[in-house]
């Protein structure tokens, strides 16, 4: 399973920390609240506040700041590219211009706003990483189902959507294994998948996609039979296994986070920092 080891998809780390113990439903709600809050801040002091909060959460979750930072490495080129584009093509009040050539203008404000956006994106990356580091995929999908289940009353197919998610997550390792098998089969017949530039390699890899798709379809067909013979007929009339009850920890963490953010918000407002 060499490929699977390198994928960071849903990289849960087992642990016994406070953050691990919080009910995934509460964690999802808090994650959304925090992300919304992050997208609303407009000052560096706001970023510092959130940054401190995240450091506290990292400490409480027993994970390492540098470990999460390392996860950023693969996407770093993309982030930098976006940053450069944003600086170059910043449209807004120009203010002081540092450099101008044709339509490219680099202004102090442009650099400031773009760096700010990047910091926000990194904060969002950090908070979602902590979430997935401390939440198992299975309890995540489970919590999602419970959260959106009430929407079934307004004919929203919540159960079905979650089921699709569950199956997709379940088949990620299977399909990765399959891909690996296909790659090895090609290599055994003399294919050279590692060499060439990006375009050449993409073309070579596309040859693997067709058999991968075919096998995925066959698997899907088998799966449908297996599900139907186990009496699956959608969410209607289905019971769920015993649900986890919310604990004091869940309530306290919820209240603490909401309080923290409201206070931060009010403080910043009061001192005109936002």
């Amino acid at each position: 399973m060499e490929l699977y080891k390198n994928t960071i998809f849903g990289f849960y780390r087992e642990g016994d920390s406070l953050i691990h113990k919080i009910d995934p439903r509460i964690k999802i709600i808090l994650l959304i609240v925090i992300i919304i809050f992050i997208s609303f801040i407009r000052t560096f002091s706001g970023i510092v506040f959130i940054g401190l909060f995240l450091l506290l959460i990292i400490k409480l979750s027993n994970s390492s700041f540098f470990y999460i930072l390392k996860g950023l490495k693969p996407v770093l080129p993309i982030i930098l590219l976006i940053l450069i584009f944003q600086i170059i093509f910043y449209i807004g009040e120009p203010g002081k211009i540092l450099f101008q050539w044709n339509f490219i203008k680099i202004s102090v404000l442009g650099i400031k706003v773009s760096c700010f956006m990047m910091l926000k994106a990194i904060l969002i990356y950090f908070i979602s990483s902590i979430f997935f580091l401390t939440t198992e995929m299975i309890s995540f999908t489970d919590a999602m189902e419970r959260l959106i289940l009430p929407l079934q009353k307004i004919k929203f197919p919540s159960h079905e959507i979650v089921m699709v998610g569950v199956i997709a997550f379940r088949f990620v390792p299977t399909l990765v294994e399959e891909l690996e098998r296909l790659m090895k089969a090609q290599i055994a017949r003399g294919a050279d998948l590692d060499r060439g530039n990006l375009i050449v390699r993409t073309i070579k890899l596309s040859g693997l996609l067709i058999p991968l798709f075919i096998s995925a379809y066959q698997r899907a067909e088998d799966l449908v039979l297996a599900m139907e013979s186990r009496c699956y007929r959608g969410g209607e009339g289905r019971t769920r296994r015993i649900a986890k009850k919310l604990t004091i920890l869940d309530f306290t963490s919820f209240i603490f986070t909401v309080l923290f953010f409201s206070l931060t918000f009010l403080t910043i407002r009061y001192f005109r920092l936002l």
Binding site: A226, R238, T239
Partner: peptide, 27 residues
């Protein structure tokens, strides 16, 4: 490989009984 639906052994084994709509304790 193509018959296991859920992400853990326990949740997969309960998939069938859940579909039958029997009560949780019995499942």
């Amino acid at each position: 490989e193509n018959q296991i639906i859920c992400s853990t052994v326990r949740s997969d084994i309960s998939f069938g009984p859940e579909n039958l709509g029997i009560n949780r304790v019995e499942i």
